[in-house]
Design a protein around this nucleic acid. Structure first.
Lengths: 153, 153
DNA sequence: ATTGAAACACCCAAGAG
DNA sequence: CTCTTGGGTGTTTCAAT
């Protein structure tokens, strides 16, 4: 599917604020409400827009500590990779998990209320996985930016 | 502000799907439409719900390469930290930037269409910052999980 | 927290460019 | 094919209880 400038603008605007009405969008883009509506439906149908979600303030929800862990596995067999990718999904503290190139195998993002909870996560959950090699943790001291919007080229 | 079980459930549901109607929520939670409505408005007013956004598929939007860069600065003076945190916001390829503890100073997440664009970003933008020390890049080979939902405790 | 009612947005049909 | 106009349906919002 090929996106024109109007589609791109719609995506940009909805990535910033999905609650704005089709009417508001129609005024910004000088189109009728229905034209906008049909374009949005198409973007949803094509799988370009995947979800509409509410974002919440982690600080206010007791997720005061964000930690990135670089994880290495003892081996890189398909079995172990599969097992890790299945097991990691069971830990609700892990909000992101990427298989990456470089010195380590995985980069995971962990959200917990405090250091005690992080310790619990490490001891009881992450490092209790048999096939786990090493882990290295980086604690987030300040979030400069953390956007869900994808740059549209 | 203290959240009861109903508030937490609402937050959980809206973090998964913000397009569901208050009526749908009212059925799931056995409350009236207005009761749900008032709770949501309160969560917005208190700043717990910060935004409603559309999520899009990066693959379909020409953001085929995700790279995490571990960045170190030459010094850690307040001036340099400030400068970096200002400058990094100007690069639209950088969707996230965290000041972290550990071997490096910052962890940034970069989204680009391809390797050529990444090279351009590194050469023309990131490493052209005078105060930049070292960088180490990890390329994402597979995204196992990447959720915007914060675990509610 | 609920009911009920007004205002509004969404969504579809029909038709124009 | 994508656009616009117009109207029915359902949702949001608010007042009263």
């Amino acid at each position: 599917m090929t996106l024109d400038a109007t589609d791109k603008k719609i995506l940009q605007l909805l990535q910033e604020d999905s609650k704005q009405t089709t009417k508001a969008l129609s005024l910004k883009l000088n189109l009728s409400v229905t034209a906008i509506y049909e374009r949005i439906k198409k973007l949803e149908r094509e799988g370009i827009i995947t979800d509409y979600v509410a974002l919440v303030d982690p600080e206010l929800l007791n997720a005061k500590l964000t930690v990135f862990c670089q994880v290495s596995l003892v081996q890189h067999t398909e079995d172990i990779v599969k097992a890790f990718e299945t097991d990691i999904l069971k830990f609700h503290e892990v909000v992101s998990c990427f298989h990456v190139s470089g010195d380590n195998d995985y980069l995971i993002k962990v959200l917990v209320p405090n250091m005690k909870a992080f310790r619990q996560f490490m001891v009881k959950k992450l490092t209790s996985l048999k096939y786990l090699g090493s882990t290295k943790s980086s604690f987030v001291m300040n979030t400069v930016k953390d956007s869900t919007a994808i740059p549209i080229t």
